[in-house]
Every structure is written in C-alpha cells, then in structure tokens.
Design a protein around this nucleic acid. Structure first.
Lengths: 339, 339
DNA sequence: GCAAAAATGAGGTGCGTACCTCAAAACCGC
DNA sequence: GCGGTTTTGAGGTACGCACCTCATTTTTGC
C-alpha cells in the first residue's frame, strides 16, 4: 500500500512517453508491437496496476450495460427484473448504468436484430438470456467485433460468449439425490414434468436427474417427462391421470420454473407422503414450502446471478481478472427451515 | 445518468462556499447547526450524491480494514483466511487494504487490548470474530468512539456492532429437517456432538435442531449433546460407546466446525444406513461428501461472508446504505451432487 | 535517398473531491 | 461597540488517469 507506481513511473520505466503508455493501456492503434511489448514488460517489472478509480473518474463514467431478456412474464423473470433494478440502484454511485430490454417471445431473429441495433458508443456490455441458435451466435460475434462485450446469461452460448449461470445437469442431479434420500428405500414411480421439455435447461436437468436415479436409487422409476405447455387445465389433467395410473407414486419432480400450476393441481389429488420437488425460489414456491405443498426447492440466487453478470462484464470492460470463486453460481437447496 | 450535481452545484444551491460544503460532507467541526441543516436540505433538494470515486482518489486511498480472528487453526479458519486474502487481492485495485490479525486463544482481555491498540488514522473498520463478553462489548464501543467502525463477524455482539453471519438456530433446524427427512419414518435415537458446547453457535444450533425434531420428527430421539473437546481419542471413545449403547442409532449430527475426528471415527464403526450431517464446507468435508462418509453438510459461503463483511464496513465508512438482500448470508445445504 | 506514412513525444485540460491556508465576516459576552 | 472567538469564504494544489492536439522522429516503400 506504499505508493503504487503510476503511469508516469511506467512511462519512465518503459522508456516511452505518457502518450504511448496511454495508447498501450487503452489499446489504441498506432503503436509498434515492439513498443507494446516493452511497455507490457515494464508493467510486470515495476508491478504497475492501473488505478481504476482515477480511470473511471477521468472517463466520466463507469460503464453502461444492458440485460436482454425474453418477455415471458413468469415469476422467475419478475424476480430477475427486481434484482436488476436493485443492482442498478446500488451501482449508480459507481457510475454504472444498467438497462433491461425485454423482447417479446422467443424469436431468435428479433433478438438478433435487437442485438445488432445496439451501439458501441452507448453500451459497453450486454447480458443475453436467449436460446442457443445460429442467429444468436452470429449476433453475439458481431457484438464483440463492434467492441460490446457479450455475456451468456443463464443460457450457455458456447464459445460465443462467457457464461454466467448454473450447471443444470448438476441441478437435476441434486433434485434426484433429494428425491432418493427422502424416499428412503421405498420403491415406485416418480413423475417428471415441465413447461416445455425442448429447452436446453430442461434437457440437462432431466439428464442429471436420470443419471443419479439410475446410479443411486434404482428402486425408484422415473417416468417419461410430461409437458404441461404452461396450460393449467392440461396440467391438472396430466397430474390427475398420472396419480390415477400410479397409485404407488413416490414423488413428483417439476423441472421448469413455472411451478405454480403443477403444485396447485397436486394439492388436491396428491397421495399422502408424496415427495414434491421443484425449481426456483419465487414468492409462490416460498409460500408453498412453508405450507408444505412442496418439500424442497432447487434454486440459484437471483441477486447473485445478476451481480455476477455485472461483475463479469465489468471485469471484461476494464480488462481485469475475475474472482472465479465468487462467480460460480451455487445450486441451492431450500427447505422450509432455511428459507 | 445525465450529469449529476457536484459539490459546486451543491454549494450554489445551499448558498454557501465549497469550503463549507466540504466541512459538512466530511463532518468537520466549526460549522453552525443552521448551516449544516441548510446544506443537508440542499443535498436532498438537488439530489446530490457524492462521487465516491473522486473522493477515494482525492483521499489517496479507499479504506483500510482489519479482520481480528482467533488463532484456532482449524480448517474453517484456514478457509476464511484464504477468502480474505483473495478478497484483498481483488480489492487492491480499488485501494482497499485488508489485514488479518490472528489472536492466540480466546482471551477476551487480550482481544480487547488489541482492539484498543488500533489507531483511527490507520484503520477505518474492524471485523471481529470473538465470543460475546463485557470486555469485548466495551472495546467495541470505544472503537466506535474513536471513529473506527466495528463489525461483529460470525459471532453476534448485540448492539455493540452490526452483525454479519448466519442464523445458527436456523442452521440447526435445517440439519434436523434433513435428518428427519432422510430417516423417513424410521424411529430411533440421534447422536449430537460437538467440539465445545458452550459457544453461542453450538447452543443456537442445538436449540434449532431440537425444535424441529420435536415438532416434525417425534419418532427420532435426539440424545444429550456430547462434547469432544477437539480430542480425537476422546471422540473415538464417545462414538464407540454411543454406537454400542444404541444399536438402533439413526443418525449423527456434528454441530461444530471440526468435523474431521468424528467423521473419521464413525467411518470405522458406523452401522450401515447411519445418517451423518455436519457443518462447514472444508476440503475434508467436501471429500467426505464425495466418499459418502457424510450425507449432508450445512454451510455458509465463506467468500460471501468475507465480502459481505467488507461491503458492510465500506458502506458504513462511506455513509452509504447497503443492499440488504446481498448481505443476508444463506444457509446452504451441500450434497454430493451440488458441491 | 526521397517523400509519404507511421510511430512517438510533449504538453495541456478536465474529471469531482479532499485538504490546506489565510483572510473576511458573523457572532458572542460584557 | 469592543475584543475575542467562531464561522465562513476564496482560492489553490493534488489525486491518477483519459483524451486531445500538434510537432517531431522513425520507419517504410520505391
């Protein structure tokens, strides 16, 4: 903490002028590779660390980010919006602006077009939650080319962008472990259902669930996934049919985020002792836990997700390393007792 | 985000000079109450927010904090030290310095003396992990009087300092819920043991554990707590005796952080199907989870704890509000599957 | 070896605040 | 209304960096 070297010291050590140091530090053009190297060497030698406070001050703003989300309207998304708004307020003091763009439906073309419309002078980074399609992949690459840092938020986009979110396979595996342990030796079928089963999340969760079931809890028989399509009537019908067809039903695993319809439907027909596991903390699932309508919730902390996304974007904008441990989103298990 | 008002604007709005604004903002003396009020009114009226970046830059440093910890030497503490070191590195760029002071043993007088020796010119805040005693309470009050912000870290100090840590009663309750669910209807005794049972943590956890056991799992009979005193030989003896005395033993709950000796001892004599629950993620407990030597770990994220402590201290130093949601330390449940 | 192009240097300004000094003004008790 | 004290003002410098302009040097192509 004794006075750290400044750009002036760096310039002297590298044998160049302040202007050149500035060019190198900020990646401007018009500097020979040889010079760049010598400055970088000097940075290491004297242990120069840029004072980001002064940099942000001089730059007159920290950064401006956007979250691009689908306009689905479920409680999970509402929670995300609330966390984003909170984070924005907290970061206003550091001159960080955060916007939220909600795009209706899951139209990859529209999403890609929106990404293409973002201006590099306005935005420094974009966190995108969207299914992985070729259009999106290209749009992300073009964003990066324009100097806007892309981030895959909750839905992995491969190497088109760094990813912030949880491992859905492990989340499914965790659900299976709880189901198996709670069943404790009983045997019978387990119902698995979800909103839509095509999404990457749902597929990964199902895979993780099945793997652990097969390995550790062979007495339980996971049934083929059923798709509710977000339709409450259909959901009720599916559940009624399943409960009737399997009088020895051990448990139900709701693997997508809309947990309300299935849990409500179960409330009326569930046999006693039925184990119910669902995903995502929402005000409904919390209440359901308290009321005993569900036994465990597998979730990820939304505030942490949002903040992690912002931290990751900032780190990239400021060309800084991240604290890996802080950015690994944990798979949380919620019981009534640790809400 | 359009140009925020600066101190200059504030001075104009309040009808005073920049010097007076400075005096008020930084709580210097020699300003009439009437003037202070009018400046504060102007702050609200024009929505002035101090630019902490510029302030930190001008002040030539962000802040300097110290963690004062007991020199116990268990894995939990080692983890904390590692997280503190990480956080310090990450925050160096923001001119935040973090020190760690390890005080041998749990001598409240020594700890109090150490706190008294801290200089307000050097430290802005201190996070203290120590048992709650009158000496400590007084030392914390005197710290605050000298202008050093105190923080109760992991161990609550009542109103002597704000608290960062988890609710140990809820942690114990969570352990009980898992124990009960994993036991799934079987009946029999449950062994509860810990390093030391006098500490506030241990007492709270036991209380939470018993409450849930009595309410939801009456078929299980928690036995009186046994104290291992950190002695492996004694631990082995206790466990051997308990296993012999209770052939129908259902589970074991290790409620303090030194989980290694009990789990190792159990490894040799545990009846099949015995449910083992312990606290705190360490490299040992993680390995034990993977190897199946323990069924669940109740823990709190150490990195989160440390960062939350620092954020809370910073917020106080900078006279800023905190993001409550971010500072509530969650009680995590770890299974093999969600490590 | 020449002109054109590329690379580098010198020097300045501004960001919003902290902190300092010295002088001027307002207030106080009597 | 006096001397003394307290309060306030004016103005400056510094923090470390970004960003700008213009001159000068070095390199490149031919």
């Amino acid at each position: 903490m004794t006075d750290r070297p400044t750009t002036k010291d760096l310039a002297r050590a590298a044998g160049v002028s302040l202007a050149t140091v500035d060019r190198v530090l900020n990646g401007r053009s018009g500097v020979r590779q040889k010079t760049v190297d010598s400055v970088n060497r000097a940075i290491r030698e004297i242990g120069f660390e840029r004072n980001m406070l002064a940099a942000a001050l001089a730059r007159r703003r920290g950064a401006r980010f956007a979250f691009v989300l689908p306009e689905t309207g479920d409680e999970f998304r509402d929670g995300l919006l609330a966390r984003i708004a909170e984070t924005e307020r907290a970061l206003a003091a550091e001159q960080i602006a955060i916007e939220t763009h909600c795009l209706s439906a899951a139209d990859p073309h529209r999403t890609a077009a929106h990404l293409a419309s973002l201006d590099a002078d306005t935005y420094d980074g974009v966190a995108l939650l969207a299914p992985r399609t070729p259009q999106i992949r290209d749009a992300l690459h073009r964003l990066a080319e324009r100097g806007i840092h892309p981030l895959a938020f909750l839905a992995d986009q491969g190497d088109a962008a760094p990813f912030v979110g949880t491992d859905n396979r492990a989340a499914g595996a965790t659900a299976a472990a709880l189901m198996g342990r709670f069943a404790a030796g009983r045997d019978g079928p387990v119902l698995v259902l979800g909103d839509s089963l095509q999404s990457r999340d749902a597929i990964d969760r199902r895979a993780g669930f099945d793997a652990v079931m097969a390995r550790d809890f062979a007495a339980l028989r996971p049934l083929p996934s059923l798709e509710t399509r977000g339709d409450p009537t259909r959901t009720r019908a599916i559940i009624a049919r399943a409960v009737a067809a399997h009088p020895d039903l051990i448990g139900v695993y709701v693997l997508t985020s809309e947990a309300r319809p299935p849990l409500k439907a179960l409330g009326q027909v569930a046999p006693p002792g039925l184990i119910r596991i669902a995903h995502e903390r929402t005000s409904f699932t919390q209440g359901a836990l308290r009321r005993g309508q569900v036994d465990a919730i597998i979730t990820q902390d939304q505030g942490h997700l949002v903040r992690s996304a912002i931290r990751t974007l900032r780190a990239r904008v400021e060309n800084r390393p991240i604290l890996a441990g802080q950015e690994r989103i944990r798979i949380e298990i919620l019981l009534k007792e640790n809400l």
